[in-house]
């Protein structure tokens, strides 16, 4: 008595999720693209279509090269450092020691806290006059004079990257921990019988078998970190101009916080951002040959 469901029935079951996808994924993309070739007055009144001129004007912005470089540094540093530290972290969490459960819970905390709250907290940690970081570092004689971490052009980016890494660690560590636990014990046994050293075992056995987890962690972090707004916005809000902005905060400033006050131009940058992250992710998956890593 089994029969294949008709098209209508299929649609009925799929309907709700299709509507959801249309509403929260497809429509915003469509609205963004449309806004990117429109002109709006400073108040938000639509003034007509202008074709690709917003894209041309975007390329003419003096601040753009600086912002692109900032974005590259921000994304590669945060993702790179996060992955290296998380690999070590996952190894630690995978080892059995008393209190492991408690430690595992604690690692989740930065992940559970809101990004704005964490960023505000770090603003005070970094503060020149009240911050605990300067207090600790001067007491330990690591630095002779306090440093204005968020006001000094040389240290702002580093300070933001540190926070970016801090909030990315929990997720990444857990992805690696899951990957480690999926590796069967007998391959380690084989390595031990062959007399491989601990380091050799790690490089030749653990890392290759962690490849799927590595790929997943890298791709998701690339997207999260590139799109991250609260950290850069909160830690950089005292600095005038666009010297430490990423493409995401720059987009917001173009729309609402700079003399440009231009939604169309910001939308054009929004489209570029989406395209860029798509290209980056697809490019990355190609180079690591996702299929084989998956197998």
């Amino acid at each position: 008595m089994t029969r294949r469901p008709g098209a209508w029935q299929t649609l009925l079951w799929l309907g709700p999720s299709l509507i959801l996808i249309l509403g929260v994924v497809i429509y915003p993309v469509f609205a963004l693209v449309r806004a990117s070739w429109s002109r709006y007055s400073i108040t938000g009144v639509y003034e007509g279509a202008v074709g690709l001129s917003n894209y041309v004007r975007l390329l003419q912005q003096d601040a753009l090269p600086r912002v692109v470089v900032n974005t590259l540094v921000w994304v590669t540093m945060v993702v790179g450092v996060t992955i290296v530290i998380s690999l070590a972290f996952a190894q630690l969490l995978d080892a059995s020691f008393p209190g492991r459960r408690v430690v595992r819970w604690f690692v989740i905390v930065p992940w559970a806290a809101s990004l704005i709250m964490t960023s505000k907290l770090f603003v005070w940690i970094y503060d020149y006059y009240f911050g605990i970081l300067n207090h600790v570092l001067t007491t330990l004689h690591v630095i002779a004079e306090p440093v204005d971490w968020l006001g000094n052009d040389a240290t702002v980016m580093g300070a933001m990257i540190a926070v970016g890494v801090f909030v990315s660690l929990p997720f990444t560590s857990y992805v690696f921990l899951a990957g480690l636990q999926a590796i069967p014990g007998d391959v380690y046994e084989a390595a031990r019988i062959d007399g491989a050293s601990a380091w050799r075992t790690y490089v030749a056995v653990t890392l290759p078998l962690l490849a799927p987890a590595l790929v997943v962690a890298t791709v998701l972090n690339l997207i999260y970190v590139f799109n991250s707004f609260p950290i850069v916005w909160t830690l950089n809000d005292r600095n005038p101009g666009f010297g430490h902005d990423t493409m995401i905060t720059y987009m917001y400033k173009i729309a609402f916080k700079s003399a440009l006050r231009d939604i169309g131009l910001a939308a054009a940058l929004g489209v570029v951002n989406v395209a860029l992250i798509l290209v980056a992710v697809v490019g990355y998956l190609r180079t690591v040959r996702w299929r084989e890593a998956d197998a």
């Binding site: 806004a35 709006y40 108040t43 938000g44 009144v45 639509y46 729309a255 609402f256 939604i263």
Partner: peptide, 8 residues
């Protein structure tokens, strides 16, 4: 930002 979005 919110007012601009409303008008837009």
């Amino acid at each position: 930002q919110q007012v601009t979005t409303m008008i837009q």
